[in-house]
């Protein structure tokens, strides 16, 4: 890769630079550029299949870019510099980068072979090298924060979807990430369980300086917590504005029709 890329700067946490992602012949992201500042809460909205989740999966290195670069905190994510040029990252580089990033999934992805507490302590012990006691203390604090201090010894399968998702949030936070990716975290929940999860997230957003990138269909939530909302369509950001502006006076026709459809559905 010989083209010059913009140099990282300290007031940018996430930087997408001409990112291309394809699945076979299908181009999901076409030369996507955007950036997120440290501590910002940015929500991605848009029709399904528009590539929102792909952005999160690229940041979590569950997928690798086909073109362009991603930087997190000024460091290349899925590339590394070798001999003056950028080459695809190896597993070691990826593991260093992943340390700063956490993700909460639509389907929770808790480990069924571990009880709740161990779900939260496992990665701090194995990946961060915390002692078991330290990890447990951290886990208990976090589980207390998400309101599940009485469930530490439960099996994930014994919990409701909302409780499982709150464990998953605690599990991600236990890694002390700088960036937290939220991938439709309430889509798999029964309606009455959504509020509990969202209020936990609001509280975390309010009390920490974690940078959030969030994909959701919960428009009210997006409006309440986001610093910025990006409307996404066909692999491109078509509108990028503070929530009040985007939800009340969308500049783009696609945004308007999308919001109409979503809000009609919710009524």
């Amino acid at each position: 890769m010989s083209e010059p890329y913009s140099s990282p700067s300290s007031d940018v946490m996430i930087q997408f630079d001409r990112v291309v992602k394809k699945f076979g012949d299908h181009v999901v992201l076409r030369e996507l550029d955007f950036s997120v500042k440290p501590g910002e809460f940015v929500t991605l909205i848009g029709p399904s299949g528009s590539g929102k989740t792909t952005i999160l999966r690229l940041l979590m290195t569950l997928e690798l870019v086909d073109g362009g670069t991603i930087q997190v905190g000024g460091e290349y994510l899925s590339h590394m510099e070798r001999g003056g040029s950028l080459v695809p990252a190896d597993e070691r580089h990826l593991r260093t980068q992943r340390k700063r990033i956490g993700m909460v999934f639509q389907q929770f992805n808790l480990f069924p072979n571990m009880r709740v507490l161990q779900n939260v302590t496992e990665a701090p012990v194995r990946a961060l090298g915390l002692s078991k006691a330290e990890a447990e203390q951290r886990a208990r604090e976090l589980l207390d924060m998400v309101g599940l201090s009485d469930k530490v010894d439960a099996h994930p399968t014994q919990l409701s979807g909302g409780q499982q998702q709150r464990v998953a949030i605690a599990r991600a936070l236990a890694m002390r990430p700088q960036v937290l990716l939220l991938d439709e975290v309430t889509s798999a929940l029964d309606p009455e369980l959504v509020a509990g999860v969202l209020s936990v997230l609001k509280e975390i957003a309010r009390t920490t300086d974690i940078t959030f990138l969030c994909v959701t269909h919960e428009m009210q939530f997006a409006r309440d917590v986001s610093d910025r909302v990006m409307m996404f369509d066909q692999g491109q950001v078509i509108e990028d504005a503070p929530p009040d502006q985007l939800f009340t006076q969308p500049a783009h026709e696609r945004t308007r029709s999308f919001l109409h459809a979503v809000i009609d559905r919710a009524v």
């Binding site: 290195t61 992943r98 990033i101 480990f111 990665a123 961060l128 991600a172």
Partner: peptide
Amino acid sequence: KAQHEGAVALNLGPVDRMRRVILPQ
């Protein structure tokens, strides 16, 4: 596959992913 991805997102290495998450299941 989600179990594998959950483990990656927690930055577990390939050996831990297999030994601690995938194989026990």
